[in-house]
Design a protein around this nucleic acid. Structure first.
Length: 569
DNA sequence: ATAAGCACGC
DNA sequence: GACGTACGTGCTTATA
C-alpha cells in the first residue's frame, strides 16, 4: 500500500546533507528500468536512483507489488548491504525469493572479498572509502551509490569478481534457505540427557568439595586456581596464563592429573557443565515457536580465511570427540518419518589440498593408493613398513600432519605430544625430508606473502598479511603461519561453498523435497526425503567431488544415513 | 558492557 | 630467551 498522505513531489534541491522524499506510486513508476540502491532499516525503506536522488517511506506504506516488480527487473543493477538480510526482510513483506533479481552488488560481500579482516558494517566501509559515516537510512542509500564504483573497481582489479559472482553471491540464497529450513531437535531427549548429566555434575561437585575440604565455585578459574595451587599445592610450579593468572586449562590439568585425585574430577565437572550449559539447556530455549525447529545464522563475512561461521546458536561446534558429548547429536533428527539424516563429509580434505598445491609426489601417491594417510606418514618418518606402525606412531604422525597445516613449531608439537622438544624437532625434520615438496610449498607460501603482502587460495581469495615483513619476530611468525594455513583452509572453504551452490541449485531444479540443513566446514547435512535417497546420494557426492578439482588427486566423500545426526556418521 | 579463561568444533 | 598450531562461538566469572 502506498502512503496516500504523501502528496509531496520530490524536491530538486540538494544540499550537503542527504535529504529524501516520500516513496509515492509515481516515484516507483519512475524507477522502473533504473538501477537502484535499497536500504531496509527497521521500519524504514529507502530507495535511491543515484547518490542524491533518494526516497523514503515506512515499510507498511509502500506498494510492495510495484516495488517487487522494480526489484525483479533482471536488466537492472541493485545495490545493497547484506543481501541475505535484505532478502529476509523482503520475503517478510510478501515478496518472492527471487527478489531482488538482476545484477546485484552487495557492498558487504564485496568488501569481505576485498579485505576479509576489516569490519564490514556499512558505516565502517563508508568511513574507510568515502570519508563519511552514514547515520540515517537515506545517507546509507547514498553511500551505496558512492561506494559502488570504488568497490567494483577494487573487486575487479584484485581478480575477485569470479569469486563474487560464482560463489559468494549465489551462496546467499543457499544460506538463507538453510537458515529458514532449520533443523528438528528432539527436545525430550535433550531434557532427559540434561537432567542425567546435571545429576552427575552435582555428585562430582560434592566429591570435589570433599577433596578440597571446602566449598567454592568450581566454575571460577580464579577460585579453582587458589584451591589447586595454594590450598592443595598440587605443584610447586603453578602454571600461569598469558596474563599471569593461575592456569587451570584442560591441557595443563591433564599433565597434573596424576598429582591429586581432585584433578580428574575437575576435568569431568568442566566437560559436564559445558555440555549442559552450551547445548542441552540452551537449545530448547532457542527453538522457534513458529517452525518448531532450531535455526542458526550463517555468517558469510566473518572469517579471515573464507570459511563460514555459525551463531545463535553455533551449530558448527556440536560435540563429537567424546562419547558423552557425541550423544547430543542423537537429538538432531529428521523432519518426520518420511525423512532421514544424510551426512556427507570430505575425507582428509586439507591434506589432499596441501598434497595437490605442493604437488608432493609422495603424499599424492599415498592418497592414490588409498592408504591411511596418517599411518602412511608414520611409516615414512619412522622408516617402517606401513603394517608395522604402532598406534602411538600413527598418533604422532597425525599430529605432525595437522601441525603442518597450522604452521608447526618443535615446541608446539612437543607440547601437543608430551615428548621432548628434540624429539619433536627430529620428527619435523624427518617429515620434511620425506615430503620435500611440502617443505618447498611452505617456503613458497611465505615468499609469495612477503612479495605480495597477501596469501591466496586456489581461486584467488586473498588474506592480507601486513606483519609478514615485521621486525617483531612473534608477529612475523604469526603472519608466516597464516601464509601457509590460509591457502589450505581457504581453498577448502572455496570448494565446499561451490559444492553447496551446485547441490542447492540441483535440488531446486529437480524439485526435490530433500533439504540441505547444516554445513560444518568439511561436512554437509541433509534432511533427506527417503524416496530420494539414491538420487540425492549420487548428486551430493558428484557435486562435492567435482566442484573444485585438484591437480593430481581425487577427492573422496564419506556418506552416512541414519535416524539422527549421530547415526548418520 | 567488557575482558579473561575456558571448551566445543574443524 | 622469547614466541610457542589455523579458524571460529558461547558460556561463566569478575570487574567496570
Amino acid at each position: 500500500m502506498f502512503d496516500a498522505s504523501a502528496a509531496h513531489q520530490p524536491t530538486n534541491e540538494h544540499t550537503a546533507t542527504i535529504n529524501s522524499s516520500p516513496i509515492t506510486t509515481e516515484v516507483l513508476q519512475s524507477l522502473q528500468g533504473k538501477d537502484i540502491a535499497i536500504i531496509v532499516s527497521g521500519p524504514t525503506v529507502v530507495l535511491a536512483a543515484d547518490a542524491d536522488s533518494i526516497w523514503e517511506a515506512k515499510v507498511g506504506d509502500v506498494d510492495c507489488r510495484l516495488l517487487e516488480t522494480i526489484l525483479s527487473d533482471t536488466s537492472t543493477t541493485k545495490l545493497c548491504h547484506d543481501l541475505k538480510n535484505l532478502k529476509y526482510f523482503l520475503s517478510e513483506l510478501g515478496m518472492g525469493d527471487g527478489c531482488p533479481k538482476g545484477n546485484i552488488f552487495d557492498v558487504q560481500l564485496v568488501h569481505y572479498l576485498i579485505d576479509a579482516e576489516m569490519r564490514h558494517t556499512l558505516e565502517s566501509i563508508a568511513s574507510q572509502n568515502i570519508g563519511m559515516e552514514p547515520a540515517t537510512p537515506a545517507e546509507q542509500a547514498s553511500a551505496l551509490w558512492q561506494l559502488y564504483p570504488l568497490l567494483a573497481a577494487k573487486l575487479h582489479d584484485a581478480g575477485l569478481a569470479d569469486l563474487y559472482h560464482n560463489i559468494e553471491l549465489p551462496l546467499v540464497d543457499v544460506l538463507l534457505s538453510m537458515e529458514r529450513e532449520g533443523v528438528r531437535i528432539d527436545t525430550d531427549a535433550l531434557r532427559a540427557y540434561s537432567s542425567q548429566l546435571t545429576d552427575e555434575m552435582q555428585s562430582v561437585g560434592q566429591q570435589i568439595y570433599e577433596l578440597a575440604g571446602m566449598q567454592f565455585n568450581i566454575g571460577s578459574p580464579r577460585q579453582l586456581g587458589e584451591v589447586l595451587y595454594e590450598r592443595l599445592q598440587v605443584t610447586d610450579k603453578p602454571p600461569r596464563t598469558a596474563t599471569k593468572q593461575y592456569s587451570t586449562a584442560e591441557d595443563v590439568l591433564q599433565k597434573l592429573s596424576g598429582r591429586h585425585p581432585i584433578i580428574p574430577l575437575i576435568l569431568q565437572y568442566r566437560s559436564l557443565s559445558k555440555l549442559v550449559g552450551t547445548y542441552l539447556d540452551s537449545f530448547p530455549k532457542l527453538i522457534s515457536p513458529v517452525s518448531g525447529r532450531l535455526h542458526t545464522v550463517y555468517n558469510q563475512t566473518v572469517t579471515a580465511t573464507g570459511r563460514l561461521s555459525s551463531s545463535n546458536p553455533n551449530l558448527q561446534n556440536i560435540p563429537i570427540r567424546t562419547e558423552r558429548g557425541r550423544e547430543i547429536r542423537r537429538a538432531f533428527v529428521p523432519a518426520d518419518d518420511e525423512h532421514l539424516i544424510l551426512a556427507a563429509d570430505y575425507s582428509q580434505i586439507e591434506l589432499r589440498i596441501i598434497a595437490s598445491l605442493a604437488a608432493d609426489r609422495h603424499m599424492l601417491e599415498a592418497f592414490a593408493n588409498g592408504e591411511d594417510i596418517h599411518a602412511s606418514t608414520a611409516a615414512k618418518i619412522y622408516h617402517l613398513p606401513i603394517g608395522e606402525v604402532s598406534k602411538e606412531q600413527r598418533r604422532n604422525a597425525k599430529s605432525v600432519n595437522f601441525g603442518i597445516v597450522y604452521g608447526i613449531s618443535a615446541f608446539g608439537l612437543s607440547e601437543q605430544l608430551s615428548i621432548p622438544r628434540k624429539e619433536a624437532a627430529s620428527l619435523i625434520d624427518e617429515y620434511f625430508a620425506q615430503y620435500p615438496d611440502i617443505a618447498a610449498f611452505i617456503d613458497r607460501c611465505r615468499e609469495k606473502a612477503r612479495a605480495n603482502g597477501y596469501a591466496q587460495t586456489l581461486l584467488g581469495r586473498r588474506r592480507y598479511l601486513p606483519d609478514i615483513n615485521s621486525r617483531n619476530a612473534a608477529a612475523r611468525s604469526f603472519a608466516e603461519r597464516n601464509a601457509v594455513n590460509m591457502p589450505i583452509q581457504g581453498t577448502s572453504a572455496d570448494m565446499i561453498k561451490l559444492a553447496m551452490v551446485r547441490i542447492h541449485n540441483d535440488i531446486v531444479s529437480r524439485r526435490l523435497r530433500t533439504r540441505m540443513i547444516l554445513q560444518v566446514h568439511d561436512e554437509l547435512v541433509f534432511d533427506l526425503y527417503r524416496p530420494e535417497e539414491d538420487e540425492v546420494r549420487a548428486l551430493v557426492e558428484h557435486h562435492m567431488k567435482t566442484a573444485l578439482p585438484l591437480d593430481g588427486i581425487d577427492i573422496e566423500v564419506g556418506m552416512g544415513v541414519g535416524n539422527n545426526w549421530l547415526e548418520a556418521h
